[in-house]
Nucleic acid binder design. Structure first.
Lengths: 125, 125
DNA sequence: TATATCAAGTTTACAATAGAAACCATAATC
DNA sequence: GATTATGGTTTCTATTGTAAACTTGATATA
């Protein structure tokens, strides 16, 4: 007797899946870090680079451009010398903070309990 | 006068950053969908494939192996015929649910308000 | 005057990850 | 004997990410 596929409140077409769409916004490399860095106010390119040491300038530029295009952040050039560029969260961006906060919270909890899984490169067999 | 770098509760070394580490666990393609699908109970490979139509079997296998190695899910072979394999969340996996739920919630909110940014491939210049 | 520094990125080359499609072994059913 | 179901694997290609060097314009320093 073939096994039955059990119900699981699904499936839904992928373009209607709120989780999938939201992950498309925040899922790129370092995206959550960038948004998190902006939570307390505007921040310059070089400040973001300092907040997130492992990010390369290329990827930081990519993330900032995408987030701007999607309305999550805004970019403002300031007439300082040399001219500087400030990035800040839009209203839409601010709405993402609770979700990222929830991730940060599990992270802290797992670390403090010593239950954060070690992430080491898969042993290539 | 050179611009000052403003304080931002940081930087912290990347290996101590709870957000970065947590994103390493849930950040791979379709990872959150897999965990979300398992929230209500165990699920077989082919059921997960149905829950998440766009995922390829290759990537599904990859995600399941990684999540198992990191202690997020467990894998159990059942002596049915043909033999089937059930995946379920561990206690650690269950702790990730609130974070993913928060993402789902923003997603729903943005969709219902019609404020979900359209994700279309960047116009290649 | 020559050199160095800072901001905000580009550019190039390479590695890792993801997607698409075809394929496979076993067992049972048509 | 062919088909279906399960739980994958394999191969090829495309996209994404990493690393490191380089650029532009302006001011600051020796």
């Amino acid at each position: 007797m073939p096994l039955k596929v059990r119900k699981n409140r699904g499936p839904k077409p992928p373009q209607e899946c709120a989780l999938t769409e939201c992950m498309t916004i925040i899922g790129g490399a370092w995206t959550t870090n960038v948004i998190w860095s902006l939570r307390a106010g505007p921040r310059r390119f070089s400040e973001l680079k300092i907040d997130i040491p492992p990010i390369s300038p290329k990827v930081l530029t990519q993330r900032l451009r995408e987030l701007e295009e999607r309305g999550v952040i805004s970019r403002q050039v300031k007439p300082t010398s040399p001219p500087s560029v400030e990035y800040s969260l839009t209203e839409l961006g601010a709405e993402l903070i609770p979700a990222i906060e929830a991730i940060v919270n599990v992270g802290y909890k797992l670390k403090h309990e010593g239950r954060m899984p070690n992430i080491q490169p898969q042993a290539a067999e």
